[in-house]
């Protein structure tokens, strides 16, 4: 009971602190501190409530148990990370993005293709493509190849739709200028339209990175070697070792956020000319 009361008090105290910090003009430090304090509050309250209410760890482990599981199995989780993120998601993302950009350039070149393919593509982009996982696992086996195949399919359509929209995002003034320079199609593509499409391509990449992680994890639920984040989640779930399940989810979440941060950093360098980057 004391734990529950303590949880309530700590919640109230830290929330009051956040209200104070966010009053008036807010500096850069407070902008970082306030969400961190909020995150810490959630973890502390979670910890205390689980102890106070005697929640069995097979239902909800404490954050410290999850941390202990992370610290105790670094080699195991690193193996899962390599299997799911680097082999499955990353290779699939690379192939899917490359294919989508090539097709997008073709679609952009031939208007007939745009009218035929784009309605189909934007329809397919909204479908639960991850459902193809059981079929692709059957075709490509339990290894990372089947995960990469699922990721390619999931990433391809959103990436295609974004890139095509990006390639069309030049003004007639800019295109006219290229024509007065006597630029050929290839030159216009490389010097004007692909750079102009970059903000859209990065938008597609950010969506695709999350989808790639989801695809490779969910595909492992349909069959995997004894390694991988999805395997770890479903296997530890079966053993009711929920601290390991959470540890695997933490690894996946860190990978997703890191991918997003890396893409944002690259985007800032590539599209430095774009109004959203000049701020």
């Amino acid at each position: 009971m004391t734990h529950v009361v303590a949880a309530g008090l700590i919640w109230a105290a830290l929330w009051a602190l956040n209200i104070r910090l966010s009053r008036g003009p807010v500096g850069q430090a407070a902008r970082i501190a306030v969400p961190l304090i909020f995150g810490a509050t959630i973890l502390i309250v979670w910890e205390l409530m689980v102890i106070g209410l005697d929640v069995p760890p097979v239902l909800l482990p404490r954050p410290r148990q999850i941390g202990a599981a992370l610290a105790a199995n670094p080699a195991l989780l690193w193996g899962d990370f390599v299997q799911t993120v680097l082999r499955g998601a990353l290779s699939g993302l690379a192939m899917g993005v490359a294919a989508a950009i090539v097709v997008a350039i073709l679609v952009d070149r031939f208007d007939w293709l745009r009218r035929g393919l784009m309605p189909v593509a934007s329809f397919l982009a909204a479908l639960p493509i991850v459902g193809t996982a059981p079929i692709l696992v059957m075709w490509f086996g339990f290894g990372w190849q089947s995960k990469a195949a699922v990721v390619v399919l999931m990433v391809f359509f959103p990436m295609l739709v974004n890139t095509v929209a990006g390639l069309a995002d030049t003004t007639s003034m800019q295109r006219d200028l290229m024509r007065t320079y006597g630029a050929r199609y290839g030159q216009t593509l490389v010097k004007l339209r692909l750079p102009a499409a970059m903000p859209f391509i990065f938008n597609g990449l950010k969506i695709g990175a999350t989808l790639a992680l989801i695809g490779s994890i969910v595909a492992e639920f349909f069959g995997s070697p004894t390694q991988g984040l999805g395997f770890r989640i479903s296997a530890s779930n079966g053993q009711l070792a929920l601290d390991m399940v959470w540890a695997a989810i933490v690894v996946g979440s860190v990978a997703g956020s890191a991918a997003y941060a890396i893409l944002t950093a690259i985007e800032a360098r590539v599209t430095f000319w774009h109004p959203s980057q000049r701020g």
Partner: peptide
């Protein structure tokens, strides 16, 4: 940015 669907099972 995180594969939150992994929580589902």
């Amino acid at each position: 940015t995180i594969p939150i669907v992994a929580l589902a099972p």
